[in-house]
């Protein structure tokens, strides 16, 4: 891989053509590298359970909904799916509601303790957070939200908050303060200037970071497995049944896990890079 990069870049003028070819071939190869495994999963998902367990495999899907039907009828799986959506939605709402004000404060004010606060946020991002699910399980049993969507959403929010703060920080920083000041001189309070000017401008970006929080929660496995017993999320359910469940259930489940992710990445693709660009610094 790296060797071919050197080749492309160092190609002298007379061999430019072969360099171009190598470059295009690499692009195609890397696209295939991402897409082909997904395609294999798609084949398995759109095949009957018998075909999934048969050998050798066909490389084109037979468009049979048998596996998906089996998945839908498997005991507990729809509840798990519902739980996943619920936890992810709660995480999305909480992380933005709690994180966005802090992102605003970081972008608009200089205040003593700002450096310390940023450090706390960055520290959170650098920790293997799912590990903290262990004591939280004990804490939740004592205080109530054990084995609930809300309890798990609290942990996922902790996971999503550093991203929410840093992303909203960079979004707010992209709105010139003059716009707010202009609104103040035109009869707005701090609050109405926010709702009438800043909020409409930032809405697409906020949506993107909310979706990002949703995906973080949707995909999280470890804390979900630790914190839920009866109310499994889809990831926790699949993990728990990995040894025992038939192949076609695993593949259909994997496919269902991936679909929202594909849509979400497509929805936020415009913001992905802007979000990281500034959050880095």
């Amino acid at each position: 891989m790296t060797a071919s990069a050197t080749d492309i870049i160092e190609t002298p003028a007379d061999t430019r053509k072969s360099g171009q070819f190598l470059y295009k071939a690499s692009v195609v190869f890397l696209c295939a590298w991402v897409i082909v495994p997904l395609y294999f999963l798609l084949i398995n998902t759109l095949s009957s359970p018998e075909a999934v367990n048969a050998f050798p495999k066909s490389f084109i899907p037979e468009f049979d909904l048998g596996s998906l039907a089996f998945f839908a009828n498997f005991a507990g799986i729809l509840t798990a799916l519902k739980n996943s959506v619920l936890v992810a939605a709660l995480t999305m709402v909480m992380s933005i509601a709690i994180g966005a004000p802090a992102g605003y404060a970081l972008s608009r004010f200089e205040f003593p303790g700002k450096g310390l606060f940023r450090l706390l946020i960055l520290l959170t991002r650098a920790f293997p957070l799912p590990l903290l699910a262990l004591p939280l399980a004990v804490m939740f049993i004592r205080t109530g939200p054990d084995d609930t969507a809300f309890g798990l959403a609290l942990v996922h929010t902790t996971l999503a908050i550093p991203f929410a703060v840093l992303i909203t920080f960079s979004l707010f920083s992209g709105i010139p303060i003059e716009l707010e000041e202009a609104a103040w001189t035109l009869g707005c309070t701090r609050f109405t200037a926010f709702t009438k000017v800043v909020f409409p401008l930032i809405l697409p970006g906020i949506t993107a970071s909310a979706i990002f929080a949703f995906v973080i929660s949707w995909n999280e496995v470890f804390a979900a497995a630790v914190l839920t017993i009866e109310n499994r999320t889809l990831t926790a359910f699949l993990l728990q049944n990995l040894d025992t469940s038939p192949l076609h259930l695993k593949f259909a489940g994997g496919f269902i896990l991936i679909v929202p992710a594909l849509i979400f990445i497509f929805a936020v693709r415009k913001y992905l890079f802007a979000m990281w660009g500034i959050a880095n610094r």
């Binding site: 003059e178 202009a182 103040w184 001189t185 035109l186 009869g187 309070t189 000017v197």
Partner: peptide, 20 residues
């Protein structure tokens, strides 16, 4: 008083025309 209660209007260097 806050800016809105001062009976003033302001023109900014970067215009600050609301893009939305």
């Amino acid at each position: 008083l806050s800016p809105k209660d001062r009976g003033i209007a302001m023109v900014f260097q970067n215009y600050a025309v609301f893009p939305h």
